[in-house]
Design a protein around this nucleic acid. Structure first.
Length: 214
DNA sequence: TGCCAGGCCGGGT
DNA sequence: ACCCGGCATGGC
């Protein structure tokens, strides 16, 4: 009998321990980080977050009031700084226009309705949207990323042509519908993707799942 | 030294 | 409906 997704989860959880994600102190910081980390190494994002934090700018109205050119300079280490400035500001405008900058009010919306609204913001795609929902808002949505696809395609759980929605659907259908589990599982996937399973070869012997699953 | 990182958008077939 | 180039810094 092939390993189930719950087997994958439990194996990784045993080997790597609790992940305590997302690495951000406040819901707003998590939202900002989710946008800044698009196709970007997290260590670069940390530098940008530190810049914003040191200037006390991690608050929606303050950040939106900041001169865009200043924002470009502060998030420079993340790369794509021009486009990310636009994306951050479009999210901030949405948050301020719709909820007066109050994330609690935003997250009080029903999951599906909020998901659609966030996806309509230019610069927020499915992964960024779902990361914000799950990690900043504690909505029970499973986050899919490049590691999820790469690792589970390699393990023959997913196929190459599965798109974001197909992958998300697969996980949702095969896991208990629990936000905390979605949270921990995605965090474990990223941990394994970054530190254990970097090889692009079809066989990755170092990967915990390769070694410990039947 | 090159390749890659927790995507997304817009324009071209 | 796809496919693809562009966006850009910092670390290994």
């Amino acid at each position: 009998m092939p390993a189930s997704l719950v087997d994958y989860y439990e194996t990784a959880r045993e080997k790597l321990g609790p992940q305590q994600w997302w690495p951000g102190e406040t819901p707003f910081e998590i939202c900002v980080g989710a946008i800044l980390t698009q196709n970007t190494n997290w260590t670069n994002v940390e530098k940008a977050i530190a810049n914003l934090k040191s200037r006390n700018l991690l608050e929606p109205h303050k950040l939106y009031a900041l001169n865009p050119a200043e924002l470009v300079a502060l998030i420079r280490p993340t790369g794509y700084f021009n486009i990310k400035t636009r994306r951050l500001r479009s999210f901030l405008k949405f948050l301020i226009d719709e909820y007066d900058g109050d994330l609690d009010r935003m997250f009080a919306e029903r999951t599906e309705a909020l998901r659609e609204k966030l996806l309509s913001v230019k610069g927020i795609g499915p992964e960024t949207c779902d990361s914000i929902l799950l990690y900043a808002g504690h909505h029970p949505v499973f986050v899919v990323d490049a590691y999820t696809k790469r690792i589970f395609t390699r393990h023959q759980v997913l196929s190459e042509e599965d798109d974001y929605h197909a992958i998300q659907d697969h996980f949702v259908r095969h896991l208990p519908a629990e936000g905390p589990l979605y949270n921990e599982f995605h965090a474990l996937i990223v941990n394994i993707g970054k530190h254990w399973c970097k090889s692009r070869e079809p066989d990755c012997e170092r990967c915990p799942w390769k070694r410990y699953l039947p």
